[in-house]
């Protein structure tokens, strides 16, 4: 280990201990103050370890990253075990096990051995010789997903979207004279509402034309395709704006933790 690495590591350890003791002392009125102090300090250490990547890749970041991978995999496994296997599978197969885990018993159904067998076959993927057997449960998963999505997407993302696009283009229409005498750019005005519906109808149509590659984008078709690009650019601009908003919120959340929960700088 290099001398500088030892100095940095020692500095971090000392800072961690100081933070732990100070935080523990500041929480003296609460239950297990030093345990709480340790947990908060450790959370802050991990936060700063991840932020350190912004300077450059380093051992602290690698430590945090690897810890996350391990703990995260175990978290999902544990939740899957208790919430699905224990609560839904065991009561269907064994009263004894259900009583052991203190979950309500149910009428037995030995059909439920089928997903267990398929699940065990899935684990065969870890074996070199029997790996091909994992394709059976995989086929079940793929077939199930295809079947469920077929109807769901067709109904909600195609049929309903198409029907929602056919909106009235003339809203509250009482003649040309009335339209021009009451013309305004008010957000809830007749013109703006009509404009919104026209943009929706034309925009969807032109957007779809842009995605249609079986015909050359020239002439009227090309013009529609061009309008489609503009609509899509506005859409991507809006998405970009919202993405910035979202990412900043996450940073605000982490910095609030550091300044409030760890350092106690704000109330």
């Amino acid at each position: 280990m290099k001398k500088t690495s030892v100095i940095i590591l020692s500095g971090v350890v000392i800072l961690f201990l100081v933070s732990w003791l100070v935080k523990g002392a500041s929480l003296s009125g609460e239950e297990n103050p030093y345990l709480q102090g340790f947990l908060t300090t450790f959370a802050a250490f991990l936060t700063l370890a991840v932020f350190s990547f912004l300077y450059r890749d380093n051992p602290f970041y690698k430590f945090a990253e690897h810890l996350f991978v391990g703990a995260s995999a175990a978290y999902w496994m544990t939740l899957g075990f208790w919430q699905t296997l224990v609560k839904k599978l065991i009561p269907k197969l064994s009263d004894g096990l259900a009583n052991f885990f203190e979950v309500p018993t149910e009428e037995h159904s030995y059909w439920y051995f089928l997903p267990v067998i398929l699940g065990l076959l899935l684990l065969m993927r870890l074996s070199k010789k029997g790996g091909w057997l994992s394709r059976w449960p995989l086929a079940f998963i793929v077939g199930y997903t295809a079947g469920i999505n077929f109807v769901g997407y067709l109904r909600s993302d195609f049929v309903k979207q198409v029907s929602s696009t056919f909106v009235p283009l003339l809203i509250d229409w009482q003649g040309v004279g009335h339209f021009f005498s009451n013309f305004s750019l008010a957000i809830d005005g007749q013109f703006v509402m009509m404009l919104a519906n026209v943009v929706i109808f034309v925009g969807v149509l032109c957007g779809l034309v842009y995605f249609f590659f079986s015909k050359e984008h020239t002439g009227l078709f090309g013009t529609a395709s061009r309008v489609g690009i503009w609509i899509l650019m506005i859409t991507f601009g809006a998405s970009f704006g919202y993405t910035v908003m979202g990412r900043i919120s996450l940073l605000v959340g982490r910095l609030t933790f550091l300044f409030k929960d760890w350092l106690g700088l704000i109330s």
């Binding site: 993302d157 195609f158 979207q161 198409v162 929602s164 696009t165 404009l195 919104a196 943009v199 929706i200 109808f201 034309v202 925009g203 969807v204 032109c206 957007g207 779809l208 842009y210 995605f211 489609g228 609509i231 899509l232 506005i234 859409t235 991507f236 809006a238 998405s239």
Partner: peptide, 12 residues
């Protein structure tokens, strides 16, 4: 309006 139209075209 335009975002809805663009997103809907993508969605379809």
């Amino acid at each position: 309006s335009p975002n809805l139209a663009g997103q809907r075209a993508i969605m379809i």
